[in-house]
């Protein structure tokens, strides 16, 4: 698995749910790079408490090597047990205090809560590079799938596991659906330029057969599905969304499929798609495609067959069902 990471400088690790082995994966990577690479570590947002309040199990903590550079918020420092050297402060504030850049002067456990916004994290990368970091790892907190955007990371590792659902089929279907979303194809060059421009100018826009376009005025794409679908007719070829493509909008489109001839929905990244695999199948039936401006480079999938709720999937069965549907390498870092 580590060989896969070699060509990339920024790597994000995102999880399908809590307790799917994200930290274990991160620790696995960190350990593999011990004394080999100088690591910069941060996260987008924070997963929360040290102890899982839902299941009362101790969550694994991130263990870093002396020399690692960490960007975390000031209040997390008291939960880091390596010897801390403050390198600089950033003026980026979070609910947990200002983001500070520290160097670990010893090995130890780190609690990482990075900036909340994608834009801020790019500034952090520049600081990391200043301190000679070879590899940047981004811990993508749950609900912060955006760390998988190619804007943030050159490569992404997805973690899934039994804690997502007690039904193995459900875990497999939704994981494969999410992998599909992250692997959505990029739109053609010509449309990309227009869509990119429209995205910066309006929340929602339509591109017609003759490449004329219309910007729809609405404050957010949320709760405005009816308005969007109302504007769609046979001549609309692309529906360009700045924000998320929600289940609500998908359902609305499917219900009004008679209005649609051939429609492609354009979103910036696969992470902007917030609907389940059932909705996805319905879309395919209606001849509606989804394309993205930039594709996530999904390297591999890691699994945790054990759920903290007390049940465990058969590892072989879990792996083979996933492999049937998913065409990227899959690892069990819990065992390795």
């Amino acid at each position: 698995m580590i060989d896969l990471l070699t060509p990339y400088k920024t790597i994000s690790i995102v999880g399908m749910a809590k307790n799917v082995g994200k930290t274990t994966t991160l620790n696995y990577i960190l350990k593999s790079f011990f004394q080999i690479k100088k690591i910069g570590l941060t996260s987008i947002g924070m997963d929360g408490e040290l102890k899982d309040t839902v299941t009362s199990t101790m969550k694994p903590r991130i263990y870093i090597e002396s020399g690692t550079i960490v960007a975390t918020s000031a209040r997390c420092l008291s939960n880091c047990d390596f010897t801390i050297q403050i390198l600089e402060t950033t003026n980026i504030s979070t609910p947990l205090g200002e983001i500070v850049i520290v160097k670990a002067l010893s090995d130890g456990y780190a609690l990482v809560a990075g900036p909340s916004y994608n834009k801020q994290i790019r500034g952090i990368f520049d600081i990391f590079l200043k301190y000679g970091v070879d590899k940047i790892l981004i811990d993508g907190a749950i609900n912060r799938m955006s760390s998988a955007d190619s804007y943030i990371s050159e490569a992404t590792i997805l973690c899934t596991g039994a804690s997502y659902s007690s039904q193995i089929n459900n875990v497999v279907a939704n994981t494969s659906h999410f992998v599909d979303l992250l692997s959505l194809n990029v739109i053609d060059n010509f449309t990309e330029k227009l869509a990119n421009k429209l995205m910066t100018e309006a929340q929602v826009s339509l591109i017609y057969d003759d490449f004329s376009f219309k910007k729809l005025t609405m404050k957010t794409a949320l709760n405005s599905s009816k308005k969007i679908v109302f504007e769609i007719n046979e001549n609309v070829r692309f529906l360009v969304l700045r924000g998320a493509l929600t289940t609500e909008l998908v359902n609305e489109l499917v219900q009004n499929r008679q209005k649609i001839k051939q429609l492609t929905i354009v979103v910036s990244h696969g992470t902007k798609c917030i609907f389940d695999y059932k909705a996805s199948e319905n879309l395919k039936k209606c001849n509606i495609n989804i394309k993205v401006l930039a594709k996530t480079n999904l390297l591999c999938l890691t699994i945790n067959p054990t759920s903290p709720f007390g049940y465990t999937f058969n590892e072989k069965e879990f792996l083979s069902s996933l492999r049937e549907k998913i065409n990227i390498p899959i690892y069990n870092v819990m065992r390795d």
């Binding site: 010897t83 050297q85 600089e88």
Partner: peptide, 11 residues
């Protein structure tokens, strides 16, 4: 404390 003034700090 080490007479060498640096732009960082630790104990």
């Amino acid at each position: 404390p080490d007479s060498n003034i640096t732009n960082d700090f630790y104990i």
